[in-house]
């Protein structure tokens, strides 16, 4: 498999800042990929030129879980140029419906086909009773939900034959029956099921603002060794709450939280996730450069 990226797929322990605990250096550690983007049709042509700032791409799994045609043709082109990771939106790991075995089989087949560096989805549920809401619905943070999610993550990891990453979602509701904080819940899921975490910095900020908790407390509650990837994105200010739209530039508040996250978690593969209101290509690259400019001095100092 040809990879033209300038990034060596170094193990997580190699070249990582010294503040990362030794537990990160497990033999099956996933590679550090650098700074990347979400693959979106709007940027296909620009990405084919293999801009050096973009070191890897995240693809939405469901868009390529198809039988043939143009999507897979494009995907093969990008696979020749970039390291890829797969990011799904439909696993519904927290649902009380049975896991969709057809979905998992197709996901596994795609992973086998494109050999992504890793596979991720969200810590949420997307539907129940056979109905899909196509939204990332929050869970109650209870022991019951924890046991339920952990057993399902283990099953998925068995099917995919790899550890998965779960992403924290933005939320607008919380439930009276919750016994744990969100960060305690996600940390417990990761530890008990031996999965990894995709930390969406924007989502931490959105949920912290909407629920009135401290985003710094959140970061401090997440185990360093579990964080494999960062998402950066923008949000929209609603009437009373902030809405995770992923359709705006990364806000100053999220950049500040990103700096805090780099200080805590060290060298973590980072990407801008833009889902709508696509800006000019140069603006998106400038955002990615900004992430790099914020993180690299901190990482050098820590080394």
């Amino acid at each position: 498999m040809h990879r033209s990226s300038s990034t060596s797929p170094l193990g997580r322990g190699t070249g990582s800042p010294t503040n990362r605990p030794m537990t990160a250096m497990r033999p099956d550690a996933l590679p550090y990929l650098g700074y990347g983007l979400g693959l979106r049709v709007e940027y296909y042509e620009a990405l084919l030129a293999s801009p050096p700032q973009v070191q890897w791409l995240e693809v939405v799994s469901e868009n390529y879980m198809v039988d043939g045609g143009l999507p897979l043709t494009w995907l093969e082109r990008f696979r020749e140029r970039f390291p890829l990771v797969m990011h799904g939106v439909s696993m519904s790991i927290g649902s009380t419906d049975p896991l969709d075995q057809d979905y998992l089989a197709r996901l596994a087949a795609l992973a086998q086909r494109i050999e992504p560096a890793w596979v991720s989805d969200h810590l949420c549920w997307t539907g129940v009773q056979g109905v899909n809401l196509h939204d990332l619905m929050p869970l109650p943070y209870t022991e019951e939900a924890l046991d339920h999610v952990v057993s399902r993550v283990k099953h998925v990891q068995d099917v995919l034959k790899r550890r998965i990453l779960l992403e924290n979602v933005s939320s607008y509701v919380s439930f009276a029956q919750s016994q744990l904080t969100e960060w305690e819940f996600i940390a417990e899921v990761a530890e008990r099921s031996d999965c990894l975490i995709l930390l969406d910095i924007n989502n931490v900020h959105v949920s912290a603002t909407n629920h009135g908790f401290s985003s710094s407390d959140y970061l401090r509650g997440i185990p360093v060794s579990r964080v494999q990837q960062f998402h950066l994105a923008g949000y929209e200010q609603g009437e009373r709450l902030i809405i995770d739209t992923h359709d705006a530039p990364v806000s100053n508040a999220v950049w500040a939280l990103y700096v805090e996250a780099v200080r805590r978690f060290g060298r973590v593969s980072t990407m801008i996730e833009r889902d709508d209101h696509f800006p000019p290509w140069a603006d998106l690259l400038a955002e990615l450069d900004h992430a790099r400019a914020l993180a690299e001095p901190l990482l050098r100092d820590a080394a």
Binding site: T96, W125, M137
Partner: peptide, 10 residues
């Protein structure tokens, strides 16, 4: 309880 919550939320 989780199933009930999800069905009501749905």
């Amino acid at each position: 309880a989780l199933q009930q919550l999800q069905q009501q939320m749905l």
